[in-house]
Write a protein that binds this DNA or RNA. Structure first.
Lengths: 234, 234
DNA sequence: TGGGATTTGTTCGTATGTATT
DNA sequence: GAATACATACGAACAAATCCC
């Protein structure tokens, strides 16, 4: 009856796959056969399918009937939708935090930024870990609002943004991001709603701009062919 | 390869259950055994479970390990979170629509409102159909933005709001709601962002107020006991 | 064009855990 | 308090569909 005594077998698979996708270990459009994954994790296909279904609803994987699951490969349009929705949600997060964040909440944010700094100054500054931490900062902020629904949505769009950046951006260059995180926290600490929202918007705009600069790098041969098959099928 | 030639077996079950919950045919906290549902729909438990999993992620169904699925019964706190997030999302919807809605889009909204009128003036003015239509108006608006992510989130919170109203409000009294819908569309047609957002906020505020008036009607015996068992487990 | 290999979709039987008598 | 009833959790096998050769 307590919180979660049994983490559920599928949760482990889910989280592992999620991290692997976000950290770009599993690249977009890569196939995810149930057998292979199940064999790797030592679980049955039933478990794997549960994890894949969850990831599909989050937009991190896509499936085609009788074709199985792939790592999602968002189009530029989908990417724009995700970023737009993310800005909308995070504005609300900032607004709420300025209103009612606790001291311990601000401490948690500081601690997270410190961690980002440590990783940034470490051996691999733009490594997978750095990518994940940059996203998690926003998730921590959303959690601090106390609004579970809002936090879940933010977590989702942040994940998808990581995937999008994995496709459309060569380097993450998270250096400036950490500093922007710091400035956001400062504005919240100063109870300055306008500044906090403005910085957050600029921050997300910068992230989106990084993505928009580069057109789809991997040639869309497969996608193009698919489009043609679809048209001939009509 | 075309859009969706095979609607998938679980989709049928999913949509039926979803409608049944939203229209309050299946009441909150009601048990949803896989066997019974599968027998009713003539499908196996596997299919039912897929549908239930989807509903769970949408917040319409809750499950406890080895205990199965229930119709969700949101607490007042969860209800507040849902409403707050909904206001945030729908402000964005209105903002986008004023910016770039098409004529045919406005026509679609008018048509929907006309349908709401017909049902309202029909035999059962506050019936299940009226409840569903009131929610679907907002989903249609979100779809018209063209932002798929935003539309999915709006659809989700609207569903959950219907469930919340089913618990915390005796009568839906959707009369005023239809008129407010009309005023929102008018403001969008006039390209008046401020007015549209203000009306939308007031509209959602009114809906929320209807819910907040009534404390949980069904005695919380079960919930209370659960809380105590949880505390003793700590 | 057709056959085989591979992968998913589904069913059903067994085991496990919970709640009740 | 123990045993029983019941529903889910999981897994193995079968069936269907797709793609490649």
């Amino acid at each position: 009856m307590s919180g979660n005594p049994v983490p559920k077998r599928s949760d482990t698979v889910y989280q592992s796959l999620r991290r692997a996708i976000i950290e770009q270990a599993l690249q977009p459009a890569m196939r995810l056969p149930e057998d292979t994954i199940g064999e790797q994790f030592g679980v049955s296909r039933t478990i794997v399918r549960q994890a894949l279904n969850r990831l599909q609803m989050e937009g991190l994987v896509e499936t085609r009937p009788h074709h199985g699951a792939y790592v999602a490969k968002p189009t530029l349009e989908e990417a724009r939708d995700v970023f737009e929705t993310r800005r909308c949600l995070e504005r609300e997060v900032v607004r709420k935090l300025v209103e009612r964040v606790s001291v311990s909440g601000l401490d948690a944010l500081d601690a997270h930024i410190a961690q980002e700094d440590r990783v940034r100054d470490g051996p691999r500054r733009d490594g997978p870990r750095s990518i994940r931490l940059a996203g998690e900062f926003h998730v921590v902020m959303a959690d601090l609002t106390g609004n579970k629904v809002l936090a879940r949505y933010v977590s989702e769009v942040v994940s998808r943004c990581s995937l999008i950046l994995a496709i459309y951006s060569q380097r993450h260059s998270s250096d400036c991001a950490v500093d922007e995180h710091r400035r956001i926290v400062q504005a919240i600490r100063d109870n300055d709603v306008a500044a906090a929202m403005q910085i957050m918007d600029a921050h997300l705009g910068a992230v989106e701009a990084r993505a928009a600069l580069v057109e789809d790098p991997s040639p869309d041969l497969k996608t193009v062919l698919n489009r043609y098959t679809e048209e001939s099928a009509r």
